[in-house]
């Protein structure tokens, strides 16, 4: 079948991100027979290796858009392309890290990270990659622990390692740091940037935190209320590492919060 053939293909440049084209995508859910429009004519074009943050009110349709990019659902209208190839199904070149780490509780940390390679049938020859991924997130000493023995931040790092071990071309992050305490969050934001700089994958990050978006991303896309429409596409032209107190970023932040309807207080 198509998926098997696609999986067997060697990934030629594992460290190079893919381009992502979201073209006039609309989506709706059926709720008790009535259509609930969630995405309305969304078009976003992402360059290879770009770090794009998606920002919008809660419930506007950000996660829905990510599921479409991952290939978990099909859009009602429009198309999505990864390097010109139409996205029709999930593929390990596009890996999602969800808000909940969703580790498999019956697998050890190592086995959780090994999941992708095992599912693709290449674990036997590539066990080293699992060890490397665990080293990358600094959890090598927890390889034999079970998920219930981990803290929230550690679990999320394992989820990140589980995604990175596949050398994705597009890393899809759905509020992965949303539930962490602020200290762990700041540490992991820095880790994320340095990983992205080293590996060069294209990154799509959904966040509800304007500051997080500005510290991490090269581009911030602001959505409207549901059904989500692209309200603004803001370029963040600042070198890394960025400083939270940077007046340029503070200015952009005020602008973004204004777009989200918070101008009165800010």
């Amino acid at each position: 079948m198509v998926a098997a053939a696609a999986l067997a293909e060697p990934i030629v440049h594992p460290s190079v991100g893919a381009a992502l084209d979201i073209e006039q995508v609309s989506h709706a859910f059926d709720i008790d027979g009535a259509a609930l429009p969630v995405l309305d004519d969304v078009s976003i074009s992402v360059e290879p290796g770009e770090f794009v943050a998606l920002l919008g009110p809660s419930g506007c349709g950000k996660s829905t858009l990510l599921r479409l990019v991952a290939g978990l659902d099909k859009p009602k209208a429009g198309s999505l392309r990864e390097d010109e190839a139409r996205i029709t199904r999930p593929h390990p070149s596009r890996v999602v890290v969800f808000q909940d780490p969703t580790l498999f509780p019956w697998r050890t940390v190592w086995d959780n990270v090994a999941l992708g390679l095992e599912a693709q049938g290449i674990l036997k020859s590539q066990r080293q990659r699992v060890d490397d991924a665990l080293d990358l997130v600094g959890l090598a000493s927890f390889r034999n622990a079970y998920p219930h023995q981990l803290s929230g931040g550690m679990a999320q790092r394992v989820a990140l390692a589980r995604a990175l071990v596949n050398d994705p071309k597009i890393l899809i992050l759905d509020e992965p740091l949303g539930k962490l305490d602020s200290l762990t969050r700041i540490t992991m934001q820095a880790e994320l940037v340095s990983l992205w700089q080293r590996k060069g994958f294209t990154t799509l990050l959904v966040t509800h935190d304007a500051e997080e978006a500005l510290v991490l991303a090269g581009r911030v896309i602001v959505f409207s209320e549901r059904p989500a429409r692209v309200k603004a596409d803001i370029r963040v032209d600042r070198p890394y590492p960025r400083h939270r107190g940077d007046p340029y970023l503070a200015d952009l932040r005020r602008q973004i919060l204004g777009l989200l309807g918070l101008d009165a207080t800010w």
């Binding site: 978990l72 019956w106 999941l115």
Partner: peptide, 29 residues
């Protein structure tokens, strides 16, 4: 079994047989 487990496995390249043997059954044990 939470559909989130299937979503994770599918994005990592799991085929249906993997979903049954390595996700559904261990989760149901």
């Amino acid at each position: 079994v939470s559909s989130a487990y299937y979503d994770v496995a599918r994005t990592l390249g799991a085929k249906p047989s993997f979903l049954v043997l390595k996700v559904a059954i261990p989760a149901a044990l």
